[in-house]
């Protein structure tokens, strides 16, 4: 589904990703772990197409499409979702209005009919309920006044509503207490654990992986994947530390 080959990304002229290769097949959940500064968020932003993240070499194929040639909104319409480590606050723009416009823009790009207001609200309510976010919060301005945990729940509600085929989740577990972690983990499984979907979980810690069991675990260090293994690799990292395992 996603094939990253020899990816090099520079930010402000400084190389961050230095030859990263990775392949995800449908039905798989991959975890990428690594120390601070390894390039984890840079990978997420590069795949999302954030301005300022300059790809200097390599390629990314998403189901036969050159992902890097698409603008960010077109990547979303193609089925990609980026879960932000720090979801952005947008004063004055209501969550539901923005999501409805976003969903319908995606549908339009795919040649599908727009969802009616009623159908959209039904879908939004179902996802909000599943993630424990009230409809009142869904009508508020995007992430404004939300706690850290509420912002992360909102990311998952958005993922549920947009229903992507591939999700790149950047430290979705950071800043969450144990209860929220369980809810988020359950959300990821419900929305994305499907034969035709795939997930790339970017995380510092093993604990999210207790709830979302990865098929593969990769260690990212110095801008490239230095080790790949099964779920047991996450436990080894937790025990031994990155310095040991990535060396």
């Amino acid at each position: 589904m996603l094939t990253i080959t020899n990816l090099h990304t520079a930010v402000d002229g400084k190389p961050i990703l230095k030859g990263l290769s990775l392949a995800l097949n449908p039905g798989e959940i991959h975890a990428i772990m690594g120390p601070n500064g390894a390039g984890k968020s840079t990978l997420a932003y590069t795949l999302g197409g954030r301005p300022g993240y300059e790809v200097t070499d390599g390629s990314v194929d998403f189901d036969g499409t050159d992902l890097l040639a698409l603008e960010p909104h077109a990547r979303a319409a193609a089925g990609l979702f980026i879960g932000f480590q720090y979801p952005i606050e947008i004063p004055g723009v209501s969550n539901v209005q923005f999501l409805r416009e976003a969903l319908n823009a995606q549908r339009k790009a795919r040649g599908e009919d727009a969802l009616s207001g009623g159908d959209f609200l039904k879908r939004a309510r179902a996802q909000a309920d599943a993630l424990g976010l009230s409809m009142d919060m869904m009508k508020r301005p995007v992430n404004v006044g939300f706690s850290g945990g509420e912002k992360k729940r909102n990311e998952m509600v958005q993922m549920g509503i947009l229903d992507p085929r591939l999700a790149i989740l950047d430290e979705t577990d950071s800043g969450l207490d144990i209860d929220a972690l369980r809810v988020i983990g359950h959300g990821i499984n419900t929305i994305m654990r499907q034969p035709d979907k795939a997930v790339l979980l970017i995380t510092h810690y093993q604990r999210l992986l207790d709830y979302v069991r990865p098929d593969f675990v990769h260690v990212l260090a110095g801008g490239r994947i230095v080790r790949t293994g099964g779920p047991e690799l996450a436990l080894e990292l937790e025990r031994e530390g990155y310095a040991q395992v990535a060396a």
């Binding site: 301005p51 909104h73 976003a102």
Partner: peptide
Amino acid sequence: DKAALFYLASRGLPP
């Protein structure tokens, strides 16, 4: 706000 514009774009909204 460029960060906000990218956030909206990442959800599928054209610029």
